[in-house]
C-alpha cells in the first residue's frame, strides 16, 4: 500500500541528540517508523510522518524527544473552539465518532 503523508513540515517533533543514549525505545514506540538508530543515536527519518501522538517522548527516559502532543482531529478542534477549551472530543464516550 502507498504510504500516506500528511502536511509538510508542521509536526512539532524535536530530538536533542546530545541527550540521546541510543536505547532504541523510540523506534519501538513510534507507530510511523519516524526514528532510526544510526551510529548509536536516534535520528528522525521523515518529520512529515509524525502524527504527534507522543509515544516516543513518553518512552524516552532521557527527555531527548519533545513533541507537542494532541490528536489530529478536526471535530475535536471544533469542539474545543466552541467550548473555549483545548481540542476535546467525545469519541468513545457518548458520541459515535471514530476519532479520539
Amino acid at each position: 500500500m502507498k504510504t500516506m503523508h500528511y502536511l509538510k513540515q508542521v509536526a512539532t517533533l524535536k530530538l536533542d541528540p546530545d541527550l540521546c543514549t541510543g536505547c532504541g525505545m523510540c523506534t519501538k514506540a513510534c507507530p510511523h517508523a519516524v526514528f532510526e538508530i544510526k551510529q548509536g543515536k536516534a535520528r528522525i527519518t521523515d518529520l512529515d510522518d509524525c502524527m504527534e501522538c507522543g509515544a516516543c517522548s513518553n518512552n524516552c527516559r532521557t527527555g531527548a524527544i519533545t513533541v507537542k502532543t494532541g490528536t489530529g482531529c478536526a471535530v475535536a478542534i471544533i469542539n474545543g473552539f466552541l467550548r473555549g477549551t483545548e481540542p476535546s472530543c467525545d469519541c468513545g464516550g457518548e458520541s459515535q465518532k471514530n476519532c479520539c
Binding site: 508542521v10 494532541g70 490528536t71 489530529g72 478536526a74 478542534i77 481540542p87 469519541c91 465518532k97
Partner: peptide, 14 residues
C-alpha cells in the same frame, strides 16, 4: 482526520 491514523494536531489546525 480524526478517524485517520496519521494526521497530527498541528497539521489539522493548519
Amino acid at each position: 482526520t480524526g478517524s485517520s491514523t496519521y494526521t497530527s494536531l498541528s497539521g489539522v489546525r493548519k
